[in-house]
Amino acid sequence: MCVTCGCSDNGESKVTNLTTGEVNHYHHDASHTHTLPDGTVITHDHSHDKHSEASQIHAKMHGTTISLEQDILAKNNLLAAQNRGWFKGRNILALNLMSSPGAGKTTLLTRTINDLKSQISISVIEGDQETTNDAQKIKETGCKVVQINTGTGCHLDASMIEKGLQQLNPPLNSVVMIENVGNLVCPALFDLGEQAKVVILSVTEGEDKPIKYPHMFRASQVMILTKIDLLSYVQFDVQKCIEYARQVNPEIQIFQVSATTGAGLQNWYGWLSEKIANLSKLISA
Rank of each mutant, 00 (worst) to 15 (best):
A277R: 11
G151F: 03
S47E: 11
G39R: 06
P250T: 10
N133C: 01
K212S: 11
Q239N: 15
P210G: 07
I92R: 05
E243P: 00
H28A: 11
C143D: 11
A188T: 11
S121H: 13
A245C: 02
T261Q: 06
S159E: 08
H51E: 13
K50S: 10
E53S: 12
H27C: 09
Q195L: 03
T64S: 03
Q119G: 04
V145T: 11
R246I: 07
Q256S: 13
G127C: 12
S52L: 14
Y233G: 01
S123A: 12
Q166T: 15
I113F: 03
Q56S: 07
D38H: 11
S280W: 03
V234G: 12
F190I: 07
L184S: 09
Q82F: 04
L18M: 15
K75M: 06
L95S: 01
Q166V: 13
D191L: 09
I138F: 02
I224L: 10
G193P: 02
I242H: 08
S273E: 03
N173P: 01
A80C: 04
S123P: 09
L68E: 15
K117I: 09
V175P: 00
S280Y: 00
G262R: 04
Q129P: 08
V145F: 06
Q147N: 08
L79G: 01
E162L: 09
N10Y: 02
N77V: 00
R218Y: 08
Q82V: 13
G104L: 06
C186V: 06
I120N: 00
V176A: 00
F255P: 00
T65V: 10
G102C: 14
A94W: 00
S273A: 06
K105F: 02
G151Q: 07
S13E: 06
S67K: 15
P171L: 13
H215R: 07
A54R: 13
I138K: 04
I66M: 15
G39P: 03
I72M: 13
I211D: 05
T110N: 08
Y26C: 08
H32V: 13
W271G: 04
D115Q: 09
N77I: 04
D191Q: 11
R90L: 09
I242A: 00
G11R: 05
T4Q: 14
Q221R: 03
Q235K: 13
T150Q: 09
E140D: 10
C5P: 01
F87S: 10
E126K: 00
T107Q: 12
Q247R: 06
A59S: 13
V199I: 14
K139R: 15
R246H: 15
C154H: 05
M223C: 06
V181F: 02
L109W: 05
I72R: 14
T110F: 07
K14A: 04
Q129D: 01
D29I: 07
S8F: 15
R111V: 03
D237R: 04
I42H: 08
H25Q: 11
V198I: 15
A219Q: 15
L230K: 14
